[in-house]
């Protein structure tokens, strides 16, 4: 990702206050043309707030939104050429699929012939031809999502925003749709922001992930960076399933060890006793009692357990944190 300073979307010290509450605190973020950035975080972390500020649906309390160097901050949502796919899809229930697509073009005065041409093209692209006369209520969840996507792409947006577009779909459909969504959205000239609370989805969709918590940006980087080199305890425990083990081994340091990095053998630093076993088919998760509390270990399903198991790990996998602030400590960094 080579960022030329002007190209793409840039958020500069963006803030949003609601009454006394600060929903978003001095967010700095860049998204390159064609890049797909996932905004990830628990609910209430500020990710949807960010999206609404970029779209212009809510006013920013401070800071700027720039697109290709152009300041969008004071423009209304209709003047930004932003497309957004909502969590609920927000399809107009009283209009057919075609009507949903046509309304925006109609009010902008696009001539009938041009309108027709663009609608046909997008219906073809998203394979919605047979559904064109149906109302949203007559569509399945996946079909609705496709219509919402069609409506977003139809207006040839300069920025594409997606607000948890898959959270109303069942798990299987989500996995099927992910590559299709990537094919349609990413790698074009627009920057794409994809909001989700699901790390799997973020990893699957995005080039980079920005992790938010409490209205603040925690870390931004490729999935691999966030996983291997987390900036703090929150990032370490939010990414990776099953979650990282946090062990209070020393009074001033906390050790983070991922379950997949722990090994059980006849020798090792720590004695452990098996408490419980979760069998997942391709893997198994073991819950072990140790002097520092319960530890989760991920192993191959048929791994035999030693009679007196002990835990061991490699030095390079140690992640040390300040127990109070949660900040990452330099010791043991790769």
């Amino acid at each position: 990702m080579n960022l030329t300073p002007a190209a793409g979307l840039e958020l500069r010290q963006l803030c949003r206050d609601l009454g006394e509450r600060r929903l978003l605190d001095r967010l700095d973020l860049k998204v390159a043309p064609g890049e797909c950035l996932a905004l990830l975080g628990p609910s209430g972390c500020g990710k949807s707030t960010t999206l609404r500020l970029v779209a212009g649906l809510d006013p920013a309390s401070a800071g700027k939104v720039l697109l290709d160097g152009e300041d969008l901050t004071d423009r209304g949502p209709g003047e930004r050429q932003v497309a957004m796919v909502f969590q609920s899809y927000a399809l107009y229930p009283h209009l057919s699929v075609e009507g949903n697509l046509a309304l925006g073009l109609k009010v902008r005065g696009v001539p009938v012939r041009e309108r027709q041409r663009r609608i046909e093209a997008i219906l073809d692209l998203l394979q919605l031809q047979e559904l064109r006369l149906r109302r949203p209520a007559q569509l399945s969840g996946g079909q609705r999502q496709r219509v919402a996507l069609a409506r977003a792409l139809l207006r040839q947006p300069r920025i594409v925003l997606l607000d948890e577009p898959m959270s109303n779909l069942d798990a299987q459909l989500r996995e099927e749709l992910r590559p299709e969504l990537r094919r349609l959205l990413c790698g074009r000239e627009q920057p794409v922001i994809y909001v989700t609370h699901d790390q799997q989805e973020a990893v699957g969709m995005a080039d980079r992930i920005a992790l938010l918590e409490g209205g603040r940006l925690q870390q931004v980087g490729s999935p691999r960076e966030l996983y291997a080199d987390p900036a703090n305890r929150f990032v370490a425990s939010f990414l990776g399933r099953p979650a990282i083990n946090l062990l209070a081994m020393e009074p001033h340091r906390q050790l983070g060890l991922r379950p997949e990095h722990l090994r059980l053998g006849d020798d090792g630093a720590v004695a452990a006793r098996l408490q419980r076993r979760e069998w997942w088919g391709h893997q198994q998760l073991l819950w072990l009692d140790t002097p520092w509390g319960t530890v989760r270990v991920l192993t191959a399903p048929e791994t035999p357990l030693p009679t007196e198991p002990r835990l061991s790990w490699q030095r390079q996998h140690e992640l040390w944190f300040d127990p109070r602030s949660g900040e990452r400590l330099a010791h043991g960094r790769i």
Partner: peptide, 25 residues
């Protein structure tokens, strides 16, 4: 709320939103 937001993003002004989206519903 998202219905009106979507209409705003598509550039509908208040009168258009009322006429094309809100009042029919």
């Amino acid at each position: 709320v998202e219905l009106e937001d979507a209409a705003r993003l598509e550039g509908l002004d208040l009168g258009q939103r009322l006429r094309h989206v809100l009042l029919p519903l």
